[in-house]
Each structure stands twice: as C-alpha cells, then as structure tokens.
Design a protein around this nucleic acid. Structure first.
Length: 589
RNA sequence: GCCUUUAUAGCUCAGUCGGUAGAGCGCAUCCAUGGUAAGGAUGAGGUCAUCGGUUCGAUUCCGAUUAAAGGCUCCA
C-alpha cells in the first residue's frame, strides 16, 4: 500500500505533508489562521490567513521547522467529535475558517480531526500514520488565493510545496521542472526571437517578430487552404461595430466586461458608441442575412482569419497564451437540424486533422462544456432549450465514441461547447480548439431558411475554430518542440555557414537558389569559425545547416548537417533540394 | 481585478550601508584563421522602467504608475 505511483497513496502522502506545513507555520507564527490544505497534482498547498506576507527567508524557516516535525516521528491520529464539540474545539483554537467549514458540512456528516503532537486539524483524511514518513519535501512558492475560490472573499496566502518518499525522487522532480522552464514558450519564444513585449504598448499585446509572424503566416495559409478544400466560404468582416449589433447578439448584456468600448455608453443617445469585436459571430451572420435562404442552400460554411479583442483583467495575461488581441481561425456553419450531426463531425474531423498535422493530437483531452442552471447572469435561453441542445450534443459525441469529461458552467453564453483542451509545459490546461452548438443567436438575428414544406425556420449554427487562435497555437508548438519546429513550419529552414569570407559569394548564390525553390534560407556571414556557427545554429534550434568551403565548391557539393540525423556528409545540390522538398511535404510530422 | 515577487547595456546578471555604474556574452573595427561547441586586441552602447517625495545630493530610501514572473478569479 506504500506504492508512490498509486494515486491514493500519493495523495495521502502529500496531504500529510500539507499538515506538517500547517503544523510548522502554527509553531512559528501561532496567530496565523488555517484555511484548507489539500494534495494537488504535483504536491500540496495550505492556505493561511496572516497579516504579513510570507517572505522567502521565512519559507526556509518553515521548511526547517517541518524537518523537525518529521524527525520527531509524531504519530498521526484520527478522532471524531459531534458538531457542537467540534465547533468548540476549533473556536478555542481561534480558527474561524474551520468553524465555517464545520457549519457547512451536511447534517449527517462525520466530523473528524487529525492530531500530530500538539497540532490538531479538522480533516476528513486519510493520512499517513507517522510524520516521519515524509522523507523529502520542498516549499516551492507563495501565492495569493481567495478563501473558497471566490473573488469576493478574503485573499489568503497559499504556500505550495511538493514531497516525495526519498530525496532522489524530489531531485528528479525539481530537475524536471527546471527542464520544463527551458521549454516555456514565454522564455524560449522571446530568446529565439518569436515575439517580444513593450511596456508602453501594454499588457497582452505582444509584438510578433519576423520568426513568429512567419510561423503564423504559414499556419494561416495552411488552414485557409484546407478550409477551402472542405467547402468553406471566406469572409472579411470589420474589427468593430456599433453597440447596436452587440445588443442583438447579447454580448452587450453578457460579455460587456470583456469588450473594448469606444465612446461613452452613458451618452449613447448623443454620440456613436462602438466596440471592438470580441467574437466574429454577429459579423459573419450578416453574410448569411444578405438574401433569403432555402434549405437547398444549407449547409453554409463560413470561415475567417479573424482578429479579436478581449479586455482581459490585468492579471490574466500570460505570454502568447492569454492576450488581449489575437487572431483565430474562426468559422460559423449554418445548417438544418438534420445536418447538425454531420457538420459537427466535419468540424471535429478538421480540428483533429490540424492537431495531427501539428503533432499535438496525443496531448489533448476533450471537454463537454455545459451551462450552469444556477448562473442566470451568464447564460441566455430557457432550461428546456439548454436541455434539448445538450442532449443533442451528447448524442453526437456518444455516436462518435469520443472520450470526454464534462465541465459545468463552461459553456458559451449562447450554447454548449466541445472544447479540445491542451496542457502546457507546466501541466496547466487551456482550451486550444472549441466547437459550439448555438440554438439561440439565429433567432435573435432573424436568420431563417425556407424548409421543404415552405415554412420559415431558424437554422442551427455551429461556432468553431479549426486550429484555435494562432498565437496560442504558436506558444504550444514552441513548448512541444522545445523551439525546434517541424521543418515545414520552421521560420528559418536552412542556414548556410560559409567556412570563411571568401566563400560568401558561393553561399549567396546557393541561398538564392534555395529561396527560389521556396526554402526559407539564411546565411551566417560572420567571420567566425565554423564550429561556432554550428553551435549557434543548434542553439537557434535549426533543422538544417549547410557548410560551404573550397572542397564543396570544387566538388560541386554541399556539406549537410541536420538536427535530426546529424552529419550527412557532402551531397550534390540537386540531392539536397530533393531531400528538403520531401521533408517539406511531410507535414504530418 | 486580487496576492506575492521583480525592473541596472541587445541578453544573463553584479554593484553602490545615498556621492550619477561594472562583468560575461552579443555588436562594430582591426589582426589572426578557412573545417564541426567559444582565437586575439580595441571600441561603441546605460536619464540604472516612468513620475513624484525625502535629502545638500537618489540608480540606491519612500510613494504612485507602467510592465514582467508565479498564483487566485476569469477565459480562446
């Protein structure tokens, strides 16, 4: 039962670790109040309420105190109390958060405590039997966290840590985290010159540098071409609209905080109020509304490479993952109820094809995002409507045999979603791709088609993206490939390294030839030793390095070195081009 | 938006217990040299994020602002 690979044992281990943390904090700072302290995926945390922030040095002191508690080999004992006595115990210890937890427990709940030495904590358990079992641990960071995860509540201080049965495993974990940091797109993407930020431009507004912009252009061409093959019609719609549009769509009522508004909404009767678009839907719908539609016209698939603006709260921006202006492969499919399943499948097939092509297909999970009936603020439509469309979507997902988990309250305000989730290099999950079924906006915008029986009906609308937003996708690609992007999408595919300055001319004509063949080629023209040039090309994560000197010029060949296969020796230029061409065509990584 | 931390040269970072700054890498020039992980010399580059306060004097201390990192909340 003490197998650390076993999730139950591991969580018990980490949970006991968090009690040791709380115990140490109470010994050092008795006035600190305790909130909660669970095990999490890679460790544990404990939330504390204390007037002063925990400084870095204090973290070291707490760790030292924890070591003492471990060395004391304290037995961890469970006991239960009736509600009133439990309250009294926690009140006597000055723990108002624990009292609140007890009050919120269901009437028939067993109220249990765990005691180690002089420390007692309200806790459902389970726990290890002795503090001495926690052989290796480390406190990793301090962060703020709202009591009970609600932003209206007090901000507590959360101390994160991790623990292992031995020092070796702890070291391996910390080393692994260190490696992950090296892949972090927010670090590597800046180092490699994909993007940068400027403080006087503002948060969440990255500058895509030539390399980043090139990758996004390549992705965009790929997406637009593939969508054209699949029957999509391209639109180009405005970046902003009058508030009137958003009032029809519901964004004005349900998404206003997320929008950049131009003009003063208070004076809407006197002056124009515009807003930058947070989504493309209401714009693209106008294309549908240009004429009357027959059931014979459906399905209609609209696609657009669409730049969106969302006024994210200031603390939410992160690298290229969460930004205020981004460009997404957006699209809306208008269809009859009969066509819904097939069109939905088509969207998923396209998304999966994209993921496969980028090599991200193994890293994703699927989430069926439903509404939260309790949240009237966020969603439009009746319970009956939601139930009906969620059932429809569930049937489609089940027909497809897709494995998914359910996210309550994660739906868009107008309908349920299938979200394709991906984890970044640190294990944090974000939505990469989303496919949504909308049963409400067609009615709001009076979108109709004439059915076989001559009746006007509202169509279903699928809101979907095929590759997600390009900035986020770029970020995930950088992390997935540690900056060494697959050849077909690499911003610099080939670098030519002349042995000395007198070979620059030969290098230039080779570069011109390769560029005319469509390969993204650069020359390292510095007067440096070739060993150094190769080293730097490797640091820049290049796939192909070509060395050119007297030998090559004499033999009419070129020395080729690839990231994947190492030194390939000298080959004729025609052979090199054939090789590069072949690799370029292998989009499926 | 909230909590914590941070901001010195293009990059990574020192430093001044308050007297306006330095290293390595990079860059430029010169010398040397063509061959697979760092040849040598010289030089240019900084309103020490911005604004304000304290002070004879602030890059340093204090405050505000802006931006960055990690969380929380929220979301593609």
């Amino acid at each position: 039962m003490s197998d650390f690979n076993d999730a139950v044992y591991r969580n018990t281990f980490r949970h006991t670790s968090s009690h040791i943390l709380a115990h140490a904090v109470k010994r050092l700072y008795p006035k600190t109040r305790l909130a909660i302290g669970p095990a999490i995926e890679n460790g544990f945390y404990y939330d504390f309420d204390r007037a002063e922030p925990f400084a870095a040095e204090e973290l070291n002191q707490i760790e030292d105190e924890m070591k003492k508690i471990v060395r004391e080999h304290l037995a961890v004992e469970r006991f239960e109390l009736p509600r009133q006595e439990a309250r009294k115990l926690m009140e006597s210890q000055g723990e108002p958060y624990k009292v609140e937890l007890i009050d919120d427990l269901p009437e028939d709940a067993i109220i249990s405590f765990y005691r180690q030495g002089e420390f007692i904590d309200l806790c459902a358990g389970p726990h290890l039997e002795n503090t001495g079992e926690i052989k290796a641990f480390k406190l990793t960071q301090v962060a703020g966290a709202y009591w009970r995860g609600n932003e209206k509540n007090k901000m507590l201080q959360r101390i994160y840590g991790t623990s292992f049965p031995d020092k070796q495993q702890l070291k391996e974990y910390l080393d692994q985290q260190e490696e992950a940091r090296k892949r972090d797109h927010n670090k590597l993407g800046r180092e490699l010159g994909f993007f940068t930020t400027v403080d006087y431009i503002g948060q969440g507004l990255p500058i895509l540098l030539p390399k980043g912009a090139r990758v996004i252009q390549l992705l965009q061409r790929f997406v637009e071409d593939e969508e054209e093959r699949r029957g999509y019609l391209l639109t180009k719609t405005p970046f902003m609209a009058k508030s009137d549009l958003y009032k029809i769509s519901g964004h004005w009522q349900h998404y206003r905080e997320g929008m950049f508004i131009l003009g003063d909404p208070e004076k809407a009767d006197q002056e124009e109020v515009l807003a930058l678009r947070p989504m493309t839907c209401p714009f693209q719908f106008q294309a549908y509304l240009t004429k009357t539609r027959s059931y014979r016209d459906l399905p209609i698939r609209y696609g657009e490479t669409s730049t969106l603006f969302r006024n994210e709260a200031s603390g939410e921006m992160h690298g290229l993952i969460r930004i205020r202006q981004f460009t997404i492969s957006e699209g809306h499919l208008v269809c009859t109820p009969d066509q819904l399943e097939q069109e939905f499948r088509g969207c998923l097939d396209l998304a999966q094809y994209m993921l496969e092509t980028l090599g991200l297909d193994d890293d994703v999970s699927y989430r069926f995002s439903k509404w939260d009936p309790a949240d009237q603020e966020k969603f439009i439509g009746s319970a009956e409507q939601w139930d009906a469309v969620q059932n429809t979507m569930q049937k489609i997902l089940d027909h497809m045999g897709l494995t998914y988990h359910v996210g309550i309250g994660e739906a868009a305000f107008y309908g349920p979603k299938l979200d394709i989730q991906i984890k970044n290099v640190f294990g944090k999950e974000d939505t990469l791709i989303t496919i949504q079924i909308d049963f409400q906006l067609a009615e709001r915008f009076e979108m109709e088609y004439t059915d076989k029986d001559g009746q006007k009906r509202h169509p279903y609308i699928i809101h979907r993206t095929s590759i997600g937003c390009y900035e986020r996708t770029l970020a995930l690609l950088i992390e997935k490939y540690a900056g060494a992007l697959p050849f077909w999408i690499a911003p610099e595919q080939v670098r030519i390294l002349p042995i000395s300055e007198k070979h620059l001319e030969a290098a230039s004509s080779l570069a011109a030839l390769l560029r005319s063949e469509g390969f993204r080629t650069e020359i390292d023209s510095r007067d440096e030793k070739v060993g150094k040039k190769i080293r730097e090309a490797q640091m820049d994560k290049l796939q192909y390095m070509l060395v050119i000197g007297d030998q090559e010029i004499e033999q009419g060949k070129i020395a080729v070195r690839s990231r994947k296969d190492g030194d390939l020796g000298a080959m004729p230029v025609s052979e090199l081009i054939a090789r590069l061409r072949q690799e370029n065509d292998q989009r499926l990584h």
